[in-house]
């Protein structure tokens, strides 16, 4: 069986991607070209001490209402292309990954940055209920706003979301 590297379709670009797996974990994989690495090294005064690093960040709003980027995890990158699973820190904020060089002075020079993603949500959002009138047409659904409200304005109690009776017949075991 060929190794994954034998299969690679050369993208010829520096890139890093973050895919959500579940509310707790994402998969990060990167590709650093020799040109991209050389370019980053040229920006460093002492490139021999710089290390190729991947880091995951999240964006939060601080007490003053300013957005702040916080590092969730960082790890050294042995190969110019590889991947690993990382933890999400919070399901409701943007996360992204960067690959780059960490200089001896602890400065991070980014080579590639992923699109931001959020972890799959595990509770419903807080949007107010909104209803639409729906018509099934040959070109899809057509909707129109309506002032419909749930008569009780309420929700399913959690215990009523499941059937409380037995779920299966006893097995024959003779």
């Amino acid at each position: 069986m060929a190794s994954p590297s034998d299969l690679l379709v050369a993208s010829n670009r520096d890139q890093i991607t973050m895919l959500p797996r579940d509310p707790k974990h994402a998969y990060v994989f990167w590709e650093v070209t020799s040109a991209g690495l050389a370019d980053a090294q040229n920006r460093v005064s002492n490139s021999s001490e710089a290390r190729l690093l991947c880091r995951v960040l999240r964006r939060v709003i601080d007490d003053q209402g300013q957005s702040v980027d916080l590092e969730v995890v960082r790890f050294e990158v042995g190969d110019s292309f590889d991947g690993r699973f990382v933890d999400f820190s919070d399901e409701n904020v943007d996360h992204w990954a960067e690959v780059g060089l960490l200089t001896a002075e602890q400065e991070f020079l980014s080579i590639a940055r992923s699109e931001p993603i959020t972890a799959p949500r595990t509770v419903a959002g807080l949007d107010a209920p909104h209803f639409v009138a729906v018509e099934l047409t040959g070109d899809g659904l057509v909707t129109a706003d309506t002032d419909h409200r749930h008569p009780k304005g309420g929700y399913f109690p959690a215990r009523q979301r499941s059937y409380s009776g037995s779920t299966s017949l006893p097995r024959r075991n003779d």
Binding site: P120, R121, T122, V123, A124, G125, L126, D127, A128, P129, H130, H150, G153, G154, Y155, F156, Q160, R161
Partner: peptide, 14 residues
Amino acid sequence: NAIENADSKPVYGN
């Protein structure tokens, strides 16, 4: 869970 964790709480459940 896609329904239950929607942008707005589903008033008719699933």
